[in-house]
Amino acid sequence: MNVIVELRQYTLHPGARDTLIDLFEREFVTGQEAAGITLGGRFRDLDDPDRFVWLRSFPNMAERERALRAFYFGPVWQAHRDQANATMVDSDNVLLLRGPGFAAPDAEGPVAVTICHPLDADAFAHYFERDLRPALAAFGSPARAVHRTEHAENTFPALPVRTGEDVLLWFTPGEAPPLPDLSAHLKTAPQQLRLEPVRA
Score class of each variant (00 low, 15 high):
M1P: 14
M1Q: 15
V3A: 14
V3I: 12
V3R: 15
I4N: 11
I4R: 11
V5T: 02
V5F: 02
V5P: 01
E6W: 04
Y10R: 01
Y10K: 04
L12M: 06
L12S: 07
P14E: 14
G15W: 10
G15V: 05
A16Q: 14
D18I: 02
L20R: 03
I21W: 06
D22M: 01
F24I: 03
E27D: 14
E27L: 10
V29L: 14
T30Y: 12
T30N: 14
E33A: 12
E33T: 14
A34Y: 05
A35D: 09
L39H: 10
F43G: 06
F43K: 08
R44F: 08
D45E: 03
L46R: 14
D48G: 01
D48T: 06
P49T: 13
V53A: 03
W54K: 04
L55R: 02
S57W: 04
P59W: 02
M61G: 03
A62C: 00
E65V: 13
R66Y: 07
L68S: 07
A70K: 12
F73R: 14
P75C: 01
Q78E: 13
Q78N: 13
Q78I: 07
H80W: 08
H80C: 02
R81T: 12
D82A: 10
A84F: 05
A84I: 08
T87C: 12
D92M: 08
V94I: 09
L95V: 08
R98S: 04
F102M: 11
A103H: 09
A103V: 13
A104R: 05
A107R: 12
E108W: 04
P110C: 01
P110L: 00
V113F: 00
V113S: 00
T114I: 08
T114R: 01
I115P: 00
L119S: 11
D122W: 11
F124V: 04
H126V: 13
Y127S: 02
F128M: 04
F128L: 09
E129G: 08
D131C: 12
L132K: 01
R133C: 05
P134L: 05
A135P: 00
A135R: 07
F139N: 12
F139H: 15
F139V: 05
F139C: 09
G140W: 05
S141Q: 15
S141A: 15
P142Q: 07
A143R: 12
R144E: 15
R144K: 14
R144Q: 15
H147P: 13
H147N: 13
E150R: 10
N154P: 14
N154V: 06
P157K: 06
A158M: 13
A158G: 10
A158I: 11
A158T: 15
P160W: 05
P160L: 03
T163E: 15
T163C: 09
G164W: 06
E165V: 13
E165I: 10
D166P: 00
L168E: 02
L168W: 08
L168G: 03
W170H: 05
F171G: 00
P173N: 07
G174I: 00
E175D: 15
E175I: 09
A176E: 08
P177K: 02
L179P: 01
P180Q: 01
S183K: 05
L186E: 01
K187L: 14
T188C: 00
A189L: 14
Q191D: 13
Q191I: 13
L193G: 03
R194S: 09
R194W: 05
E196G: 05
E196R: 09
A200K: 13
A200G: 11
